[in-house]
Write a protein that binds this DNA or RNA. Structure first.
Lengths: 339, 339
DNA sequence: TTGAAAGCGCTAACAG
DNA sequence: CTGTTAGCGCTTTCAA
């Protein structure tokens, strides 16, 4: 079966401690000994048993990433960034999908499935302030997004209000006066949808433009289909529209499709901006203006903070106070808001 | 620190074996005992240490999934399917990205990073027949795709030649006579690109159409940009085109964009079909015809076969012979090949 | 610079 | 039905 430290030690004629020292590239091993041991390792094809190492040392080198669904482009790109960053730091990533279901999100945090993970990066969609107690867990946890403001854990967040405000300001500068916003959630007041809606309204207010409820497109999820459906309903209602802010790119692309189906030219008749700066926005027709939420920075920060917590914990230090990290965003103008 | 079986046993006044029996929902536990133990588990918030369980039992409940990059939509959707299917069977998924680099793919198979994984689903891009020896590993391994025909492991594959042939036949039936194919790899003869090119050519041959090298678009990768660039080169060369087969949807969407930039109407002037049936093909403008490669079936089969191998191995059975599984495909006509 | 030995938390064989 | 106990492979004092 598997080759163990003991096998290598026997082959090399040394103790397992010495082999362990070689494996971990520790000093205090005579060069000649190291060579002999290394040769034995290579011959036998020794690979450390990570379960045993993890049991003994208390760390597995695996971090968990919980998100709604990886097939949604934003989360696919986020997962990519997290995996890449984690690899840099010698960690692998285990992915848990919550399907954006509140029950699944709540269960996840207590799930034994995470037990061989050193810590968790969690992008909740459905949790709200009332679930804040659930975030009191006995392992390192970093949350992403803005659902939970005052959780007991570190938190990486983008300024959704300001970013959304910038998106709508961009449409205003492009001359739009009847701006629809697609992606609102009925009755929500602290999720991404609520914050982006607020930013949108702040931009309108600052420009002295009236808020018009008929220009708010409510949706269930933030998929393409939802964007298309909401846009169709808006158009069918007969309300006049010359600009659309999609709360994410997939919504905006769905809306774009609905506009084109209705014979409206983008950007000539209606201008459209999305949010997330997905790769595909560079290849649609027209290319889609968007807000870059600083995905790489979010991933990098989350992984860094999590790894710091893991190490702090392992060292038995008293935990530093929880922090909130705010990343930066920027508007990326493309064809859909040109001219 | 963490609550162990021993703690629970002490609290409940039973032995750890009994607690273990309760945790594993085994029979032969008196109801009254079970209740007491369960109460202790809940009170103490016991969660099994999976590292220890894994060390002892030889299985971690984690399967590895190695792919080029999750941010590529096809792989994002594949990962989603694999994760969903694995969850059904009580496994979690650890993702490794190879970045489509040969060296990374080769290293991965020997990497200790996979050591706490029960088995691996591997979607290689750069390995070739000469690397077949690398696939001789001492853990359960299932490969996806068609790079390696005669590997020593189970293999889930779609019939690329037939599927590509069907795509080009679809264009021929729609009346195309000058069909470009985008995505060929220079000098390759056994990867997806080569197989899909072959299928394309078979369709031309069967229809008695000439092969025209000027209609073959060579690319480096299969990203949108590559599709757009290849299409632009083709158009710039002055060759006549009335149909385009993109070897995957992102290539096709890049090409679509290039066609539209050149003022060509799709589908009126040029018809376009892709491959992968990504969700976004339903929302582009025009919607993109594609070939559904049976992603769910691929994922489901791969996970099932892998889990079977893991169990076979755990039971100490002599391994059944390696098998190849071929999944089904179908052409999905949409607006880009209509009329 | 190297060796001996304890034990991380759990499973399962064996005993009662 | 329930308890006892021997390791799984590794890390890590503590000695030598």
């Amino acid at each position: 079966m598997a080759v163990t430290l003991r096998d290598v030690a026997q082959r090399a004629g040394v103790s397992i401690k010495t082999v362990s020292n070689v494996v971990h590239k520790r000093q205090y091993v005579k060069d000649s000994t190291r060579d002999i041991v290394q040769a034995a390792i290579d011959e036998l094809g020794y690979r450390p048993n990570l379960s045993a190492r993890s049991l003994r040392s208390g760390r597995s080198g695996v971090i968990g990433l919980a998100l709604p669904e990886v097939r949604l482009p934003y989360f696919a790109e986020l997962a990519d960034s997290v995996i890449t960053e984690a690899k840099q730091r010698g960690h692998t990533v285990l992915i848990e999908q919550t399907g954006a279901e509140p029950a699944a999100e709540r269960e996840l945090l207590r799930s034994p499935r995470l037990q061989l993970t050193d810590g968790l990066i969690f992008s909740p969609l459905a949790l709200s302030q009332s679930d804040v107690g659930l975030l009191e867990v006995d392992y390192p946890l970093v949350t992403l997004g803005e659902r939970i403001f005052d959780g007991p854990c570190d938190h990486v967040v983008m300024d959704n209000v300001a970013a959304a405000r910038a998106a709508t300001e961009h449409l205003l500068e492009a001359g739009c006066r009847r701006i629809a916003v697609i992606g609102a959630h009925e009755g929500e007041d602290q999720g991404s949808a609520a914050l982006r809606l607020r930013g949108h309204q702040e931009a309108l207010d600052a420009a002295g433009m009236p808020r018009d409820d008929r220009l708010v497109g409510y949706v269930g999820l933030w998929h393409r289909q939802d964007g298309a459906d909401a846009m169709r309903r808006l158009l069918a209602s007969g309300v006049e529209v010359d600009g659309v802010f999609g709360m994410n790119d997939t919504l905006a692309l769905g809306a774009l499709r609905a506009l084109q189906d209705a014979g409206l030219a983008v950007p000539e008749g209606v201008k459209v901006i999305g949010f997330d700066d997905l790769e595909e926005t560079r290849y649609t027709s027209p290319t889609l203006s968007s807000v870059d939420p600083g995905r790489m920075e979010i991933a990098r920060t989350a992984v860094r903070v999590l790894v710091e917590r893991i190490e702090e914990r392992l060292a038995g230090e008293t935990p530093a106070p929880r922090r909130q990290y705010t990343t930066s965003y920027r508007v990326v103008p493309r064809e859909s808001t040109a001219g």
